[in-house]
Computed example of a mutant assay.
Amino acid sequence: TKQAAHISLQKIGEGSFGKAILVKSREDGKQYVIKEIGISRMSSKERQESRKEVAVLANMSHPNIVQYKESFEECGCLYIVMDYCEGGDLFKTINSQKGVQFPEEQILDWLVQICLALKHVHDRKILHRDIKSQNIFLTKDGTIQLGDFGIARVLNSTVELARTCIGTPYYLSPEICENKPYNNKSDVWALGCVLYEMCTLKHAFEAGNMKNLVLKIIRGSYPPVSIHYSQDLRSLMGQLFRRNPRERPSVSSILDKPFLSHRIFRFLTPEVGYIHTHTHTHKVPGTVSPLTV
C-alpha cells in the first residue's frame, strides 16, 4: 500500500479536515506530512468535491506555498502528502518571543511572502479560507510558506457557497459574522489578523465568548499597534480591518504599496510570474513593479 511506503513518526495536528501525521518516506528518506481525510461517510458529491480540491492543490506550485507531493485513497480515507516545514509555524514563533516584539523589517519580509502566496492563490480564483498564524510555516532557511488548504474552495464552485465558518474564530471577518458569503476580501481580513499578531504578539479580536467576540469584530474595535512601528504599516493595518470588504485592498494592491513593493525582488524566483521592469526616473532605483506576466 502507498501508506506503508511511509514510516509514521508522530501526529502533529488535528484539524477540521482530519489529522496530520509526520512521516518519513521509505523512498527518499525525507520527512513529509500526510493529511488523512475520512471520506467513507461523505456523500458522493462531497467526495468529488474533495478530489477536486486535491487537484487544485496539486497544481499549486510556488516558493511561498507548502509543496504538495502526491495523494492517494485507501480504506475509506483520502491521504494528501505535503512537504514538511522544519521551522514550525508562525504561531509558535510568535509565542516563543515571550513578549519581545519583532523588528519591522522582519514583519515586512514575512508579510510580503504571505502576500505573494495569497496572490498566487487569488489569481487562480481560489479562496484560501483558513489563513491564520498556525497555517503559515517557516522552512529551515526562514522562508515563509502558506499551508493547509484543508478547506479552500474554488471561487466559482457551485457546490458550496463558502459560507461555513470553520475553525479558529479569531480570524472571522465581519461579513462572516453577519452570515454573508465568504469572498477574497475575507482572506484579506484574516491576513490583517495575522499582521496584527506579528506586530503585537496578540490576537486583534479576543473575548471570553463567541457573542462578545462577534460584537468586537463587527465594531472593528482592536487595541492600537505600538507607534514604534511605521505609519505605513499601521495605516495598512487599518485598511485590512475595514468593515466593508469592498474597502479592503486586494492582495495585489497591498504588494503595490511602495514600502512593500521594493522588497518583492528578494523573494522572486524567475518562475514566480513577476517581471522586473526597467527603472523609471521617478522611481526609487532598485524598485520592482509587480507586473503580472
Rank of each mutant, 00 (worst) to 15 (best):
Thr1His: 14
Gln3Leu: 13
Gln10Asp: 13
Lys11Ala: 08
Ile12Phe: 06
Glu14Trp: 02
Ser16Ala: 13
Phe17Ala: 07
Ala20Ser: 11
Ala20His: 01
Ile21Asp: 00
Val23Lys: 07
Lys24Gln: 14
Lys24Met: 13
Arg26Gly: 04
Lys30Asn: 14
Gln31Phe: 09
Glu36Cys: 12
Ser44Met: 12
Gln48Leu: 11
Lys52Tyr: 11
Val54Ile: 12
Ala55Asp: 14
Leu57Gly: 02
Ala58Tyr: 01
Ser61Leu: 08
Ser61Ile: 09
His62Cys: 09
Ile65Glu: 01
Gly76Arg: 10
Cys77Leu: 08
Tyr79Cys: 04
Tyr79Pro: 00
Val81Cys: 06
Tyr84Leu: 03
Glu86Cys: 05
Gly88Arg: 08
Ser96Gln: 13
Leu108Ile: 05
Leu108Glu: 04
Trp110Ser: 07
Trp110Thr: 09
Gln113Cys: 07
Gln113Asp: 09
Ile114Ala: 05
Ile114Phe: 04
Leu118Gly: 02
Arg124Ala: 13
Lys125Tyr: 09
Leu127Phe: 15
Leu127Ser: 06
Arg129Trp: 05
Asp130Ala: 02
Lys132Thr: 04
Ser133Tyr: 02
Asn135Ser: 05
Gly142Ile: 02
Ile144Glu: 00
Gln145Gly: 01
Gly150Cys: 05
Ala152Ile: 02
Val154Asp: 08
Val154His: 08
Ser157Lys: 06
Thr158Arg: 15
Val159Gly: 14
Glu160Ala: 15
Gly167Cys: 04
Gly167Val: 04
Tyr170Gln: 08
Leu172Pro: 00
Pro174Ala: 09
Ile176Trp: 01
Asn183Leu: 03
Asn183Gln: 08
Ser186Phe: 01
Ala190Glu: 04
Leu191Lys: 03
Cys193Val: 05
Cys193Ala: 08
Val194Trp: 02
Met198Ala: 03
Met198Tyr: 00
Lys202Cys: 12
His203Ile: 08
Glu206Leu: 11
Ala207Lys: 07
Ala207Met: 06
Asn209Trp: 06
Lys211Arg: 13
Lys211Met: 14
Leu213Ser: 03
Leu213Pro: 01
Leu215Ala: 12
Ile217Val: 13
Arg219Ala: 13
Tyr222Arg: 04
Pro223His: 07
Ile227Trp: 10
Ile227Lys: 15
Ser230Phe: 02
Asn244Val: 07
Glu247Ala: 12
Pro249Gln: 07
Pro249Trp: 05
Val251Lys: 00
Ile254His: 00
Leu255His: 01
Lys257Leu: 12
Lys257Cys: 07
Leu260Tyr: 03
Leu260His: 02
Phe265Gln: 13
Tyr274His: 06
Ile275Met: 11
Ile275His: 12
Ile275Leu: 11
His276Arg: 15
Thr279Gly: 15
His280Leu: 13
Thr281Gln: 14
Lys283His: 14
Gly286Thr: 08
Gly286Cys: 06
Ser289His: 11
Pro290Asp: 06
Thr292Ala: 12
